[in-house]
Design a binder for these strands. Structure first.
Lengths: 178, 178
DNA sequence: TTGCATGTTCTGGATTTTCAGAAAATCTTG
DNA sequence: CAAGATTTTCTGAAAATCCAGAACATGCAA
């Protein structure tokens, strides 16, 4: 394989990754464009401008802008200002573990916390009821709540740990060899 | 509070839970109806028939049927046949930990595994390339893959453990007091 | 100031998802 | 088998989501 063939292969692989990652993000309930932009930034050697992203993914400026803002909101990418350049550039956090921590914290905030609140409310409303059915319902709300609160703490704990610590723990408990 | 007031309060709380759980499911990327049916079965003292579910949630037969099938597919509910009754009834797995294990396994299968495959492919395609950029890309695919494979094993490990084992582990490592 | 580069928000249409209700298929019982 | 009960699948419409392109806003430089 000569140099230009190699270059071609790399481009293909990159493209494949970006496209497929979009599809997977979709399955995960994430906007396809957002997943693709993230993937693109993940595998780009350097920061990219909005225009480069638009061109690469064939998307409109509005679309690019909105999703870039959302990604910044998630803390998965950040904007970079270059000396002498007026354009804004974007780059992704490439450390996988840091990425995971960011996502864990955000999901905790956006998805787990609201659920905990609902359970809390339903639980409190039925604290004093006496009927068997009500007691059972109350118990169930408590159980679900306990579980989510536990998950919440574990996520928080994990997200605060060093990667190598987690890996060694995983190895110890689950016999993984990574 | 007298008996009928109590009963009323319980009904309200149940309704609140079912409705809100639907909304939360939505935020989690789960069909609202599916989440609501699951919530309803979770807090119902006994199995429910399709018709009862339809009436309770004000949904059509087709909608109810499809989502019930999906829930069965996820392993979150199962159908119950009652002696002498021709109708099919449904009941949810109510043990929260078992529920979590089921969900963990399914998500692993549906979301993590496909992602791992994509990464594998992209990684293999670029194994032999020499250019710095290509090496970097390849490294990144490996890193992401390693992480997902680790997550995969941890999920599998967790899903195979007893609840009390996990709780004590969580307490030990993250100082939770649940 | 004007003009241009850049970034943000809005609007209408395309696409996808969800769902009611009907039609079709599959029982179950006599 | 026939008749009714029950379940599944299909179809078109409603709703939600996504997104291009335009309109608008902002900042900078001459």
């Amino acid at each position: 394989m000569n140099k230009s063939e190699e270059a071609e292969t790399l481009i293909e692989a990159r493209d494949d990754f970006v496209t497929q990652w979009g599809a997977i993000g979709n399955a995960w309930g994430i906007n396809r464009t957002m997943a693709q932009i993230h993937a693109l930034l993940l595998v780009s050697p350097g920061p990219l401008s909005t225009d480069e992203i638009m061109e690469d993914l064939h998307i409109s400026r509005g679309n690019a802008n909105t999703n870039l803002r959302d990604l910044v909101g998630w803390g998965l990418i950040k904007s970079v200002i270059r000396k002498g350049e007026r354009k804004e550039f974007f780059e992704a956090e490439k450390d996988v573990w840091k990425m995971f921590c960011t996502i864990a914290r955000e999901r905790k905030r956006r998805e787990i916390s609201p659920a905990i609140e609902v359970l809390q409310r339903c639980s409190e409303k039925t604290t004093k009821l006496k009927a068997d059915e009500a007691v059972e319902f109350h118990r169930q709300m408590e159980e679900l709540g306990d579980f989510l609160r536990l998950a919440d703490r574990v996520m928080e704990g994990l997200a605060g740990m060093e990667e190598n610590k987690v890996v060694s723990m995983a190895r110890k408990f689950f016999g993984t060899k990574v």
